[in-house]
Design a protein around this nucleic acid. Structure first.
Lengths: 193, 193
DNA sequence: TGAGTTATGGACTGTTTGGTTCCTAACGGT
DNA sequence: ACCGTTAGGAACCAAACAGTCCATAACTCA
């Protein structure tokens, strides 16, 4: 009962995701969010409590959407060689930049900023990156070259690749020449072969 | 002539560097800087114009201090095997974190934040990272394993390693479990051998 | 010693920040 | 038709922000 909401909550979160994705948590101002989401202060605070809580909802949504699809790709048994999955994951990162998408990764941006010190936000970031790490490890297990390695060495390579992912996503947001990003992705492909 | 300055400018920049290093550009407030540098608003604005100009001075100082010493290590011909230089560079990154230093790299933090869109700041970041890249490339040239590679492949590996550096420095500032950072550094050592 | 010059430090300013309040609108149940 | 409840929207708020102003202090030079 009561007056019905005039906007769709999940649509609003999707729009908020876009705003946070572009600006990062601290740099996304309330006017930015209000404008991007198409609602007024009263509605936003009634529905989402405050900016931080909205961001937590957004992180949740991002995890289920972007991170999960990355994990799915890394563990997609339809591509039998795990290396190919990893390579296409990094190819996707590069392609996004090539197409002018400089948003990077919401989690990586959050990890790099002051909000990383917020325990709850940090947990989301860690969980998301851990899922990616798990996917990478699985892909390596499915690689003919790496499946014969001992577990420890494979996990070290997985962590190395995860770190590479973070680095690429940060560079994607920066003004550093994108040739570096392209080369780095090609370097990964060579390194895995 | 006129009243002499009561503080040492280079000492003040050093202290400002520390503040920006810990907080990043946008998160370092004027009170933070004033407090950390031990001077008042009037003095700071008289000597450094404004926050942004001070940050540019700091970037300059950081480049000559931290970045240059990294480059020197990467091109130190006293260590004949270039791989060893790269490995000890990453070992230094890990050791810093192990010793509780979570400041990361001033340039990487700047690259990850909104200030990366400031052209002049971006130039400093790019220049600094380019110097590191050059050092890495030289080190690879001095590696028995990699000197026989063709130039292109070696540069792709250099870019890969630079990206790794950025990723590690970002993770160092985050709450992501530091085991990942340790593993990643070990992974690099294995990968280069 | 007085004139010119520059540094200092605190008070002040205007803007932007995230967040709150409160009146009104729009509904469901009785 | 009225009541309870919830949403919407604009006005409002306190705090923090970077930056400015100005009276005073500390010096050099004539």
């Amino acid at each position: 009962m009561g007056r019905p909401r005039e906007f769709n909550v999940s649509k609003a979160i999707e729009r908020a995701t876009e705003v946070f994705w572009v600006h990062g948590y601290e740099d996304a101002s309330l006017p930015d969010l209000l404008n991007g989401m198409g609602l007024t202060r009263g509605s936003l605070y009634k529905a989402f409590t405050d900016k931080r809580s909205l961001f937590l909802r957004v992180l949740d949504h991002y995890e289920r959407r972007a991170v999960q699809s990355g994990y799915d790709m890394l563990t997609d048994s339809a591509i039998s060689d795990g290396r190919k999955r990893i390579q296409s994951m990094f190819a996707n990162v590069y392609d996004a930049v090539k197409d002018g998408d400089h948003r990077g990764c919401l989690l990586c941006t959050a990890a790099a900023g002051p909000s990383a010190n917020d325990p709850e936000i940090a947990k989301h970031v860690t969980d998301g990156l851990s899922l990616l790490r798990k996917g990478i490890a699985q892909a390596l297990k499915d690689s003919p070259k790496h499946c014969v390695w001992d577990e420890g060495k494979r996990l070290r390579l997985a962590d190395h690749l995860l770190t590479q992912y973070v680095g690429l996503r940060i560079i994607a947001r920066s003004q550093v020449p994108m040739g570096i990003l392209e080369h780095a992705c090609e370097g990964i492909a060579e390194l895995l072969d």
